[in-house]
Every structure is written in C-alpha cells, then in structure tokens.
Amino acid sequence: MPGVHDRGGWPTDEMIDRSDHIWTDWEYKTHALVGALRFRELMNTDELRRGIEAIPSEDYEASSYYERWSRSLETILTEKGVLSTEEIDTKVKELEGRWESDS
C-alpha cells in the first residue's frame, strides 16, 4: 500500500479546480518559518516531507496544504527539542487572550 502522499494514478473523477485561494498571514508565516529554519540548518526539506508523510491518512486528506506543513513543523521541532508541545499550548492560550483583549 503506498503512503497517503504517494498519490500518482489513484483513481478519481474529480475535475481540476483552478481557483486560487488568498494566502493568509499564518500561511506566509508558516512557509517563512520553514525557510528561516532551513537557512539556520535547523531543518531540511526531507524532514519537512517526512513529517508531512507521517500525518495519518484521514488528517492528511482533510488538511489544507499549510496545515500539513504546520503539523510537520511542530513534529520536527518538538522531536529535536527546539520547542515542546506544552510551550506551544501555553503560547496559543496567551495569543488567544491577547486577541480577545484587542478586539
């Protein structure tokens, strides 16, 4: 069985949707973070791909392109001990609080 990313030739009746979405701030930031980490040699393309390929099939298919990147980024950074899951959890709460009080 090929991995969920190894999709060439999989049967589908789907037409090709040629509309483009507008990039949002977090997508730019996700891409740019990977770029900056690559520049610092803290992460490479192969690791990013491996992290994406490790996403369970249902999640892989349900996620948007940069959601997959983001998930891989978290996998690789926590695995390397650069960040911890708890740190990220805490920071998310902090950001939510800040956005709440700003709005």
């Binding site: 701030d25 930031k29 900056a36 940069y66 980024l73 950074l77 740190e87 990220i88 920071k91 950001l95």
Partner: peptide, 12 residues
C-alpha cells in the same frame, strides 16, 4: 492549526 503556527512563530 493556524494558531499553533502563529504560536511557533512567536516562540521561535
């Protein structure tokens, strides 16, 4: 997921 990306951005 987007929130976690922004959190990683700020943390890093």
């Amino acid at each position: 997921r987007a929130k976690r990306s922004l959190a990683m951005h700020e943390l890093l």
